[in-house]
Simulated scan of single mutants.
Amino acid sequence: MKINQNTVLQGKKVTLVPYTAAHVPRYHEWMQSEELQRLTASEPLSLEQEYEMQRSWRDDTDKCTFIVLDTAQWSGQEDEECMVGDVNLFLTDTEDPTLGEIEIMIAEPSYRGRGFGKEATLLMMSYGVRNLGITKFEAKIGQENEVSICMFKKLHFQEVAVNSVFQEVTLRLDVNDQERRWLLEQTNHVEEKSYTDLKQPAEVLET
């Protein structure tokens, strides 16, 4: 999505940066994992297909994605060395542009269970509410992924459907005034910055 192609959201544990071509090789490595393919219901892609997918994430109006970085490691290092996962919003309901389907993946096993997924999800939700006009979120999660289901329930999502064919649970959050205040309170520490400005010093050093 073009709107976030220069946006950085910096939190305490995680920093969200736009998904660029430089992130693709590491992302492609992650998605060779059969575990991640199963948890994300994804098919393995070739590296060239992964680059095409990255371009579509950047250009399509119904997709918004950020790469999740470790904030503590990111200072002074290249993004690729600090990548831990990604977080996505799908705006695919043409009849309801205020509905966003959210996905979170913490790909690096050593970062799971440490609050990185929770903060990344909160940052994306806050961004969706403030910048994209989202007032309803859905998350579709495999029934076996109890950790993710539990995390979303802690973020006030409620289970609304179970698809036994796809073995998938749908959770939903309607962002009323109370939920909006809570969400903005949870993310009031977040700094929004320009990705271009932050990347500039590294580019100057290289030339």
Rank of each mutant, 00 (worst) to 15 (best):
E144K: 13
G85C: 11
L184F: 11
C150A: 15
Q200R: 15
K154F: 07
V14H: 01
V190S: 01
R180C: 08
T196F: 09
M151Y: 12
G133H: 01
E52I: 05
I104Y: 05
G11S: 08
Q77L: 10
D177G: 05
A41R: 09
E192L: 02
E80S: 12
R38S: 10
H28N: 08
L91M: 08
V169G: 13
I141S: 10
S33F: 09
D70P: 02
G128R: 01
V68N: 03
P97S: 11
K12Y: 02
N131S: 09
S148N: 11
L205V: 00
E185N: 04
F137H: 05
V14E: 00
E203S: 00
T20D: 03
L122K: 08
E146Q: 15
Q77P: 04
L183W: 03
L132N: 03
H189Y: 10
I102M: 12
D177P: 04
M31C: 13
S33Y: 07
G142T: 11
V129T: 04
E168P: 05
M105Y: 08
V84N: 03
Y111Q: 02
P201I: 06
C64N: 12
E119H: 07
V204Y: 05
G76V: 07
Q77F: 08
R26P: 02
N145T: 09
L122Q: 09
F137Y: 12
R26M: 06
L69T: 03
G115C: 00
M151G: 10
L173Q: 09
D197A: 15
C150I: 12
D79I: 10
Q32H: 12
L36G: 12
N176C: 05
V17E: 09
D177F: 01
I102R: 10
T92L: 15
R112H: 04
L155Q: 15
V165F: 07
P201M: 07
F152K: 14
M125I: 06
A202R: 03
F66E: 00
Q32L: 12
E203T: 03
N176V: 06
I134N: 00
S126W: 05
L89N: 00
Q200T: 14
P18F: 06
Q37V: 06
V175P: 01
W74A: 14
E168A: 10
T196I: 14
S46C: 03
R130P: 01
G11V: 01
R55N: 14
V175K: 02
F157L: 13
T135K: 00
L171Q: 14
